[in-house]
């Protein structure tokens, strides 16, 4: 790679990533990628990065004294630059998006607990004590008990996106959410199993829904889940402005 190309590539890449980051912050969508507690640092440093890139672009070119690199090294550097340029460009061109049900499936829904809700505490309280439970709380309770008596007369209302159940994709799906600790790469999928025969004829994967119902015996033959949410009502909704939950 020539010296002038080397001189510009880093500045252009920092400027592109910084500009994209600043735009996400301005449009209120930075939360699609990083947790709110990191937003201030990320935004300030992206602004500094953009200004520093512009100021460095104005500096007179330094003489190129670098030793000639071996051919494989130049090839590697050229490939890296090409891929970097493509990724940076897509960052500026493609619409911002959330993670999808594909990642929820790969990460195994409810493989980790993200709530401190305790079944022992809830069992001794009135059934109305769980009215305000979030999807996160319910997912945690599901990991703790499959005793049907525990769930009777407890209404569940929650929103989330649809992820097909891997064991019985025709009759079961999860109403699911991602919980983010630092950034989207650490997203953990949580969800509640829902039994609805032939759900694919009415809804589709990744669709956002508002669901109301009660937990009961799971009628699916293929699923290993003992209980499932039996929906009274499911309504399609728009994706919320904050699609992730934050740990």
């Amino acid at each position: 790679m020539s010296g002038s190309a080397t001189r510009w590539q880093g500045l252009v890449l920092i400027a592109a990533v910084s500009a994209s980051t600043l735009w996400l912050w301005m449009s209120g969508q930075l939360g699609l990628y990083v947790a709110p507690r990191h937003e201030a640092f990320v935004t300030i440093m992206a602004a500094i990065g953009l200004v520093a890139s512009l100021l460095s672009a104005v500096a007179p070119a330094a003489h190129d004294h670098s030793a000639a690199a071996p051919r494989w090294n130049r090839l590697l550097a050229g490939t890296a630059t090409g891929i970097s340029a493509v990724v940076a460009t897509t960052m500026l061109v493609l619409p911002p998006a959330t993670l999808t049900s594909a990642t929820a499936t790969l990460r195994a829904i409810n493989s980790t607990s993200q709530s401190s809700a305790s079944a022992a505490d809830v069992a001794s309280a009135a059934t109305s004590s769980t009215d305000a439970f979030s999807i996160n709380d319910w997912a945690s309770i599901l990991r703790q008990t499959s005793d049907l008596a525990f769930y009777s007369d407890r209404n569940v209302t929650t929103i989330g996106f649809i992820t097909a159940d891997p064991e019985d994709p025709e009759n079961m799906f999860y109403v699911s959410r991602f919980v983010i600790t630092h950034c989207a790469i650490d997203a953990q999928a949580i969800g509640l199993p829902i039994y609805l025969e032939n759900w694919g004829s009415t809804f589709e994967a990744d669709q956002w829904i508002d669901v109301t119902g009660e937990f009961g015996t799971n009628r699916s033959r293929d699923s290993s889940q003992a209980i499932a949410l039996l929906p009274d009502d499911i309504t399609g909704i728009d994706q919320p402005t904050e699609p992730y939950l934050y740990a």
Binding site: V17, V87, L99, C183, A184, I185
Partner: peptide, 10 residues
């Protein structure tokens, strides 16, 4: 892309 961007932005 979403995962890669999140690491980049972070």
């Amino acid at each position: 892309l979403t995962l890669s961007y999140s690491v980049l932005i972070e």
